Simulated scan of single mutants.
Amino acid sequence: MASFISKCLLDFLVAFGVVLGGTMLAGICAVLTLEPPAWRMASVAEQIKIWALVAAIGGTIDPIRAIETNFIEGHISPAIKQIMYIVCAFTGAHVGSTLIQWICKGGSNG
């Protein structure tokens, strides 16, 4: 069980870090190219979410294949674990994107 939670946390934080790191570097790029950093960062935060998910789960189709194989063979528990890893990675990417969106708004209510 500890291994499962550890992997879920790892997937969450890797996806979160990819979104955060990618958008911060996009903000630096915007400053260097004289663009509005908040606009560029908000845009990249939305675009990079799927890539953060892919990076967190391993970057290959193997996790999806593992779900299919385990499900077809009747092994539901490993399939559910793989789905939970994907959900954790998606949640990390979404939380990172939401955080960037919130920061780029400047905390305003609009």
Rank of each mutant, 00 (worst) to 15 (best):
I5G: 05
V87F: 13
T33E: 08
W102N: 07
A38T: 06
I83S: 14
H94D: 12
G58K: 09
Q47P: 01
T33L: 11
P63E: 11
G106L: 00
A15Y: 01
L53D: 08
C8A: 10
M24W: 10
M24E: 09
V14E: 08
G92E: 02
M41A: 04
A2I: 12
V14L: 11
H75E: 14
T69I: 15
I64Y: 15
T23H: 04
K49S: 10
E68P: 01
D11N: 15
A2Q: 10
G59R: 13
A42N: 06
N70P: 02
L10P: 02
I76H: 09
A26P: 02
L32I: 03
A52S: 11
E68S: 11
I72S: 09
Q47L: 06
T33A: 11
W39L: 15
I86T: 11
A56C: 03
L20Q: 01
D11R: 00
E68F: 09
V14N: 01
T33V: 08
C104P: 08
D62N: 05
P37S: 14
F4V: 11
A56Q: 02
G59M: 05
E46Y: 02
P63G: 13
D62I: 10
V54F: 09
A2R: 12
A55N: 00
I67T: 06
V95M: 04
L9G: 12
I100W: 01
I28V: 15
F16M: 00
C104W: 05
L10H: 01
G21Y: 10
G22F: 00
A38K: 09
T23Q: 02
G110R: 07
A15K: 01
A52E: 07
I50L: 14
G59S: 05
K7P: 04
